[in-house]
Amino acid sequence: MSAAPISLKNLTVAYDRHAAVHHVSGTFAPGSMTAIVGPNGAGKSTLLKALIGEKAIASGAIDRGGLALASVGYLPQVAEIDRTFPLSVADIVLLGAWRQGGAFGQVSRAMRERGRDALATVGLEGFGARPIGSLSSGQFRRVLFARLLLQDAEVILLDEPFAAIDTRTTDDLLRLIDLWHTQSRTVIAVLHDFDQVRAHFPQTLLIARELIAWGDTASAMSPENLLRARAMSENWDEAPEFCDDGHRHVA
């Protein structure tokens, strides 16, 4: 389904000159399924935000191979969304049809039909009219997945999709992710559960601000690599030297 690879070329993303993602290079192959793993503050979410163009790049580049940002599906961390907003479940799911309906286009019967199907797929059949404020956090996560289904994106980025939800919801949603993988969509997910990563994700990108390992899950998640990742996240230098590559960011 997705044609071009997404390449990071010596990518650095910084907050207030402290690099959160530091000189990372590599490629997400089309149709690959990659877990991004690393300790808290390792730059995992930052990397995703750079991929969708929300966070500015300090140096280096991202080559999306001509892929339009609109065909990237992104699941934000749930804390970033106001769940008391007075919208219905169907409203949220139908946002996924933005590429067809746009800002002003009509919401066609076919779109509504697809919205209902997507809700049924995530196990929320008939929930369309409910206000999102009445949903549990697991149900709300399912709604966001239904929106992703409707988006029909070639590349799907998930930021901690299973944080704080029960195992049944997690299993249902993992099945969806596996389905996306068999449809040759590129899936990139930030995850914390190592067993989950080993069981479902062929590729792993292990990061602790700097790239520790990127490749087959089995070799990337070796005990030595995990130990290195933990050690690197623990040393945070208040006044580090400037990086000597001539750019503005610091190491």
């Binding site: 929300e54 940002l69 934000p76 106001d82 949220i92």
Partner: peptide
Amino acid sequence: AVIYRPLIAECFDPGFLRAVSGR
């Protein structure tokens, strides 16, 4: 009435609207 949908979408999930429309 004209900008209702993008306005509400921008209110609810600004990141999403930025990704799909950029405006």
